[in-house]
Design a protein around this nucleic acid. Structure first.
Lengths: 150, 150
DNA sequence: GAAGTTAATGAGATGCAGTATCATCAAGCG
DNA sequence: CGCTTGATGATACTGCATCTCATTAACTTC
């Protein structure tokens, strides 16, 4: 059983496409449903598998295109797991960070306003002008916090 | 001209291999030199090119194995650029973060002790137990700070 | 310094993620 | 209904990374 985060409904994805002027095609609707049905992060390969198993007849290119599209619209974010895999996380289109459970893969978004101080400190330390940053956190969700204490 | 960070000497890489019980082979020495000669981050592909141009006769598998090895020993860290490319950065085996210049690719390490507070805040917010995190910062180094103000 | 042991190597094959191409299809519009 | 054009999917392709395995050479032992 996975740690439940609020399951994303499919409608926001579909309506966002509509509002941005993209066509609401069957493959896109199907992908929106598949994404909505997932907790936490998922990979393109997982969606490919699911689509194939369900005989939806959706091509690989379409899946990558749709993921790119959702990412452009800020509804998905692509993140890099420590394993080197690329995963996607459904999220709100505001700046935030991801916390990923290393046991079950559940993830959740967090706002970390206080990181601005850290960024400022780093600008001072390095002399760089920081434009953007990515903070990814790995740990164990409440249901797995007891497992394998490091 | 790139922003100069301290160029890493090859010896630490070589001695670390020795101390960890690995053999000091010619390809590994050559790669240590190549890595030491680079500022900032580099990709596996760049090392492959350099090895080929110099006719060192080092196989691609050897390069990837050596990079893995150095990464395991904590002498290199693999990081994911926003473009999706994988790069390696020579670094000290202590926890730190990387700042990467988006103009010239120069990078430098920073310690961000104050991030502990941020992590604690996120643990509280999310209920997760955080084991590790990665913070990657993108911006412009002192030499390119003026370029393309966003 | 020579011989033996075995980690390490390199060439090529293979796997796999992601992209490009392009003829066909269907969403939205009138 | 029919048109226009964005979207699709089959296929081929690219490029990074890994696997396999026979050969090589680094370290050990004597």
């Amino acid at each position: 059983m996975q740690y439940h985060q609020a399951v994303v409904a499919a409608e926001p994805l579909v309506t966002a496409l509509d509002q941005a002027g993209y066509r609401l095609t069957q493959p896109r609707r199907a992908l929106a449903m598949m994404i909505a049905g997932r907790d936490g992060h998922f990979t393109a390969a997982e969606l490919l598998d699911e689509a194939r198993q369900r005989r939806l007849g959706i091509g690989r290119a379409t899946i990558f295109r749709a993921l790119d599209l959702f990412a452009d619209l800020g509804l998905l974010e692509r993140l890099d797991l420590p394993t080197g895999d690329h995963a996607y996380v459904p999220c709100e289109p505001v700046h935030h960070h991801h916390v990923v459970c290393s046991v079950c893969g559940a993830s959740t978004d967090v706002q970390a306003a206080c990181i601005q101080a850290t960024v400022a400190e780093i600008e001072r330390q390095s002399g760089f002008r920081i434009d953007s940053h990515r903070l990814e956190l790995y740990g164990r969700c409440p249901l797995h916090a007891a497992a394998g204490t490091p």
